[in-house]
């Protein structure tokens, strides 16, 4: 892919790189950094588009088009406040592949934990920690306390196993562990809310709708008890 692009559009590769570089710079944060970050995000998104589109561009061998595309993306981002809506759209678009990447970004031996599961495990460890803390050389790191506090405050359920069983039916329909964990952590009240939170489910909407409704009703029962 890179070679193909490199032949005709060295500019494309270069453009992609520079735009990528601009992202950490823009995240660095000054007054209008969010506008910049939006820009950065847009640009990044565009480069993703570019890398996909490279084939078609290079097959057309339209060098000019590539450069204007890159510039266009930047200037569009630069036009102040009206970007907001555009950015929103791009975020939503982005969320689709990003949600799925939860599984891809981590090694295969990683298992998603719901907050309630994590709280369960961490509380168990905390008890051991109390024993260990007799040894002054072992310090309980700050992130452990923060993690535990976070898991505790956000675990809506006391029985992780039951919740897991509830989601079994969803995972049979191809909902990934990552998606399930987000739903369990947020505990949406309506089906619409669930789709807004996990946009990648929208693709399977027709199949999931009834099932999801049922699961959310059950989930609400667990939450109250």
């Amino acid at each position: 892919m890179e070679k193909g692009g490199g032949g005709k559009g060295g500019g494309v590769g270069g453009g992609g790189k520079t735009s990528l570089k601009s992202i950490p710079a823009s995240l660095g944060g000054k007054d209008d950094n969010s506008a910049k970050s939006k820009r950065g995000r847009k640009v990044q998104f565009n480069t993703e588009g570019l890398s996909e589109g490279k084939f078609t561009f290079s097959s057309k061998s339209d060098g000019k088009f590539e450069t204007t595309y890159g510039k266009g993306g930047l200037t569009k981002g630069g036009k102040g406040d009206k970007v907001a809506n555009g950015a929103k759209v791009s975020v939503v678009k982005e969320a689709l592949p990003l949600e799925l990447r939860v599984e891809q970004e981590l090694p295969k031996n990683a298992k998603c934990l719901m907050d309630c599961e994590a709280a369960h495990i961490l509380e168990g460890i905390q008890e051991q920690m109390a024993l260990l803390s007799a040894d002054p050389t072992i310090k309980i790191p700050v992130s452990f306390d923060k993690g535990l506090l976070y898991a505790k405050t956000h675990s809506h359920f006391t029985n992780p196993q039951a919740v897991k069983g509830l989601f079994q039916s969803l995972s049979e329909h191809g909902v990934t562990d990552g998606e399930i964990c987000v739903i369990a952590n947020i505990c949406p009240e309506t089906v619409e809310e669930a789709y807004a939170i996990v946009p990648s489910l929208k693709a399977k909407r027709s199949r999931l709708n009834d099932l999801l409704k049922e699961v959310l009703i059950q989930l609400a029962k667990f939450k109250s008890t």
């Binding site: 950094n33 982005e94 990447r101 939860v102 970004e105 990683a110 956000h154 946009p199």
Partner: peptide
């Protein structure tokens, strides 16, 4: 047990500081 944020993930967080930015 690791904790990692992902792009596109929805989280519930506690506000620690507010300013004009």
């Amino acid at each position: 047990v690791v904790f990692r944020p992902f792009k596109g993930e929805i989280l519930e967080a506690v506000v620690s500081m507010v300013n004009k930015m």
